[in-house]
Design a protein around this nucleic acid. Structure first.
Lengths: 335, 335
DNA sequence: CTGTTAGCGCCTTCAT
DNA sequence: ATGAAGGCGCTAACAG
């Protein structure tokens, strides 16, 4: 195990000063093409690799960023992570990924670690931190981007990337209404879910826009799982047999609704139209294939990373706010 | 934007030497409890955060590792990533995640970056690098763990974590045989797939063990997608109507096979039993629910990270080799 | 138990 | 265009 070569080794071997080596490897002009090539050649022969650590200590920049997500195994976040990493990669950044499990303590812990590592910026997804803590955290980092969360007292210019759940729901509901549906129920997911609330808002907007009444009785909360969706749908369709369409919190719930309709002998889409959300692989494979709202997770990640890079590079960064809208993927469950 | 406090600031404020501050924050004995507390108090007041960068430069350790995967958006790898990060987190390590898209250039590029960042170790998943390159790479890092790939010339003790695809397939096929199936076809996935080949091997072993003949005609390659699985199954069942069961490369392919059976009027499982692989959420939701081999991705990640930590800490690390076996989840498609 | 000295490997600034 | 000096923030090794 021999020591890695340093710029000093390269300098000696090339017969120049360390500084010249630095100039050569950093391609910062002020150096003859000839010596540059000679130095690079020596560097290559010595298998020299610049130490990012030493460089960071000297420059006060790490070209590393932190990505904080509740759970990378959740397709929503792994999609975002992929988008983030793609842009990061092509811009020379490396990405620390941290999972929080929506646990305050672990989130704080992750952020502390990122802070000590002096990342150039951080992308926070679905943070559950209270405003005050979040504000403090965001202020502590050189740059930060919030995904799926806003921060009220914008003490500091802070970029956000949001999903327009409300408009997504509006589009879906408008689709249903335009196809003649009038009694639209909503399997709203967990009460605590913010996107659930925003989608409810979108639903109501769409109803209003089309002059339809809002019936609170057609809204049922449920856990975001198939079985819970099934039960909720059974219950809802039992109480309100006149329901002619269902908007589901996500595709799993939508599949539950599909099962419920089957059990009740209600044909989909003739008797009940169903719209899911997420467009997981499953969506196109059930019978009938689900109409659903696709969330552009990868694009979200890309946008977040682009914003972050912009913030890092600009002197007076502006607080951009990007909103991406889910796309209605029309299949047979709500043609 | 005021400068971050350093140990010098804390030292001055607490009336001790920088080294004492270092001892206090690192909890390294050799310091009175009293001064330790006093120093920590000052550090806290000054919002002091040790610079991991400076520490790394001094100690030559980063407590950071690299995780290299083809695509973090692929559930297989995001599961592994989750396992890796969990263990890393509880051991104080941070994780750089890099995607390669199975592209040599990008993989090399990612590894270069990790090398420059002086990570303490690297976990390489499904590397597509040729043996020679891989060997060189592995040697370049202080520690390395291979997931889903072995390295022949074990020049250096190298830990590996593998999935026993062969045994997984054996278990699945044994299950089928014990239920009276005799003509077992295999939708083998892409020809280039290593796990596909290993599963084929497992299939043949199981047949041999039960004294059944191996019929190469019952093996069809296909892309790992539903539509390709459907076509391959249609073709196969057309040529060999006596096939009474199907092992599929993954669940998506299995669903394709399910569709094919439906089209051909072959009842599942009565006429054809189907076993998938992966146990994606979809598997339990199709009709009939899929019997499938669950791959313990999270456990793979945990094992890999544990091995890596062990390798990092030990002076003479031994090349552990961990093999995890898929678990047969029995549902209605092959009861 | 505490302080002092000397780097870790690189970049910034200023000379030449 | 190149070189020399100094410092980034911390810790290892030694001294007291």
């Amino acid at each position: 195990v021999k020591r890695r070569a340093t710029i000093f080794d390269v300098a000696r071997e090339a017969g120049v000063s360390p500084q010249t080596v630095s100039r050569a490897i950093n391609d910062k002009g002020e150096i003859t093409e000839e010596t540059r090539l000679r130095v690079l050649d020596v560097a290559h022969r010595l298998e020299f690799r610049p130490s990012a650590i030493a460089r960071s200590l000297a420059t006060n920049r790490t070209t590393a960023i932190g990505l904080v997500v509740p759970d990378i195994a959740n397709p929503f976040f792994s999609g975002i992570a992929r988008g983030v990493e793609d842009i990061a990669y092509s811009s020379g950044y490396s990405v620390f990924v941290c999972n929080t499990d929506e646990d305050h303590h672990r989130e704080i812990s992750a952020l502390d670690s990122l802070l000590e590592r002096q990342v150039d910026g951080v992308i926070l997804c679905s943070s559950r931190l209270p405003e005050m803590d979040l504000d403090k955290v965001v202020r502590a980092f050189r740059s930060a981007v919030l995904v799926n969360r806003t921060l009220g007292g914008n003490q500091k210019a802070i970029c956000t990337v949001l999903v327009d759940d409300s408009r997504g729901a509006q589009v879906a509901v408008a689709h249903l209404i335009e196809r003649g549906r009038r009694r639209i129920a909503f399997l709203a997911g967990p009460e605590r879910s913010w996107s659930g609330r925003k989608r409810l808002h979108g639903l109501e907007e769409a109803l209003k826009n089309h002059g339809l009444p809002i019936d609170r009785g057609l809204i049922a909360h449920c856990e975001p799982e198939t079985e819970d969706g099934r039960k909720a749908a059974l219950h809802l369709l039992g109480l309100h047999p006149d329901v002619d369409s269902l908007l589901a919190f996500n595709d799993l719930v939508a599949v539950g609704a599909l099962q419920a309709c089957q059990e009740l002998g209600r044909e989909v889409p003739q008797s009940v139209a169903i719209v899911g959300c997420d467009d997981i692989p499953l969506a196109s494979l059930v019978t009938p294939p689900l109409t659903t709202l696709r969330i552009p997770t990868r694009e979200i990640g890309e946008a977040a990373m682009r914003s972050l890079i912009a913030t890092i590079h600009e002197d007076q960064p502006e607080a951009t706010q990007i909103t991406l809208t889910p796309e209605l993927v029309v299949r047979s469950s709500a043609p």
